[in-house]
Simulated assay, not measured.
Amino acid sequence: MAAHSGSKTVIYAALAGNFLIAITKFGAAAFTGSSAMLSEGVHSLVDTGNGALLLYGLHRAARPADRTHPLGHGRELYFWSFIVAVLVFALGAGISFYEGIAHIMHPEPVANPMANYIVLGLSMVFEGGTWAVALKEFRKSKGNAGYIEAVRKSKDPSVFTVLLEDSAALLGLVVAFAGILAAQLLDMPVLDGVASVGISLILAATAVFLARESKGLLMGEPALPEIERSVLALVQDDRDIGKANGIITVHIGPNEIVAALSVEFEDRLTAPAIEACVERLERAITRKHPQITSLFVKPQTTGTWKKVRAELAI
């Protein structure tokens, strides 16, 4: 649970902020009749529900291994992250698009645009606060990598999901503000509906990106190359290892890795000596990389390993 304390801080901040913002936006939409504001309210409400789902995913993923799930429940977080992406697309983007088209076909002037401007301004402040919390947490883990690269490499979707949702929310607020202002200045109520469609497109793009990343994690992504290289170096340094052929890893959670090693033991070793060597390797590897929660060592010649790798086209 401690490994996810930063993630939970980000989600709690987003959950509280989005809930308050959603209520305010719905109130403003009911008072002014703005289509863009209604879409923004739906957006914030969906983000609130998504935060709750991510917390649920973290809770489920933290359960220990059992008979039916011998490697643990870490992938539950990846499953719920994928559900979040689906909800952003189906509810957030879908409802916003429908509302925008309806308003374009039957445009109505906004009754009191000043109320919308005030709500949008306050929303930008609140969203900016939760976005800053998510960005700070994400920076801790991204290192020197670029933001897009860091998202693609990240194995913890809870942080980057909130960051991307908050980024989309801020961009949506800008679009809503521009649409309402343009509709007022140009006396073209249809632009309010156009802004709502614009918000739906932002949400759809965010959902597609999140779904793609969550899908990769759910299907199984390998550990970072530097972790694999470090493990192979540890193995190769052992006195009883002739050659460390290679390693196959897969994340079953943000901080849970299953690793399978292919090694060639020295010919002089007896069965008890091989067993002692494997235990020694397990201690050394898990000491340096505690996120490797399951380790399997397979005695294998270099030729056999190369043949297997070729068949897998890895």
Results as ranks from 00 to 15, higher is better:
Leu171Asp: 01
Gln300Cys: 15
Ile274Val: 15
Thr301Arg: 09
Gly27Cys: 14
Ile247Gln: 02
Ile227Ser: 07
Phe177His: 01
Glu99Phe: 10
Gly179Trp: 07
Leu54Tyr: 03
Glu311Gln: 12
Glu275Gln: 11
Met37Arg: 01
Gly242Tyr: 09
Val297Cys: 08
His59Thr: 02
Val46Ser: 05
Glu264Lys: 12
Leu171Gln: 05
Met1Asp: 10
Leu185Met: 12
Val258Gly: 00
Ile227Trp: 10
Ala29Ile: 09
Phe89Leu: 14
Ala134Tyr: 06
Ile101Gly: 08
Ile95Arg: 03
Leu122Gly: 06
Gly193Ile: 10
Met188Asn: 06
Gly179Cys: 12
His103Leu: 11
Glu311Pro: 03
Ser123Arg: 04
Asn255Tyr: 15
Val235Leu: 14
Lys155Phe: 02
Ser158His: 06
Val208Leu: 15
Leu186Val: 03
Ala313His: 13
Leu203Met: 12
Leu218Gly: 01
Ala182Gln: 07
Ser96Val: 07
Phe138Glu: 01
Leu71Arg: 06
Gly193Ser: 08
Val235Cys: 12
Gly143Val: 05
Ala150Asn: 03
Glu256Asp: 06
Asp238Val: 14
Pro189Leu: 12
Trp131Val: 03
Ile274His: 06
Arg67Lys: 14
Asp187Gly: 12
Ala93Asn: 05
Thr304Arg: 12
Met188Phe: 13
Gly172Val: 05
Asp267Phe: 12
Ala52Leu: 15
Pro70Glu: 09
Ala182Gly: 05
Ala233Tyr: 10
Phe89Arg: 01
Ala29Leu: 11
Lys140Ser: 12
Ala271Thr: 08
Asp166Leu: 09
Val86Ile: 11
Glu76Arg: 08
Glu149Trp: 10
Phe79Met: 09
Glu149Phe: 11
Leu186Asn: 03
Arg283Glu: 10
Ala313Phe: 11
Met124Ser: 08
Val250Phe: 05
Glu127Asp: 03
Val42Pro: 02
Ile23Phe: 15
Ala132Val: 09
Ile148Val: 09
Leu15Cys: 07
Arg67Gln: 13
Ala90Arg: 05
Thr9Val: 13
Tyr12Cys: 06
Ser44Ile: 03
Pro157Trp: 01
Ser214Thr: 00
Asp267Gln: 15
Val88Asp: 00
Ala244Glu: 07
Phe79Pro: 00
Ser39His: 10
Arg152Ala: 07
Pro64Thr: 04
Leu163Met: 10
Met1His: 12
Gly6Thr: 04
Gln291Cys: 12
Thr301His: 08
Asp237Val: 07
Gly216Trp: 05
Gly94Phe: 05
Ile104Lys: 01
Leu191Arg: 06
Arg63Lys: 13
Glu137Phe: 13
Gly92Asp: 02
